[in-house]
Amino acid sequence: MFFWIRELIGWTLLAVSLYLISIALGFAESRQVIQAGIIVVASIAVMRMSVLLIRMNTAARISQQSEQTD
């Protein structure tokens, strides 16, 4: 159960970071590069954390499954 909650939180954070990137793209299209750069940095931080959460969760799930089968 905890695995699925963590996975859900990870994917939600990933969606948030993609939303931030879409905002940054909007800034870039209207040629506001500085604002877009700030948003991109923030979105990359959120994305890195979300990917880390998903990967840790997946690795933990695979390890636990193998332990249970052993």
């Binding site: 990917v51 998903i54 990967r55 997946t58 695979i62 390890s63």
Partner: peptide, 26 residues
Amino acid sequence: AGYLIISLPFSEFHWRHLTPNQAGIY
């Protein structure tokens, strides 16, 4: 932005194919 959006599905797809040994090492 394009790189992030394109590379994410690929890398996550590969990540799902970890062996238990690799998962433990990570």
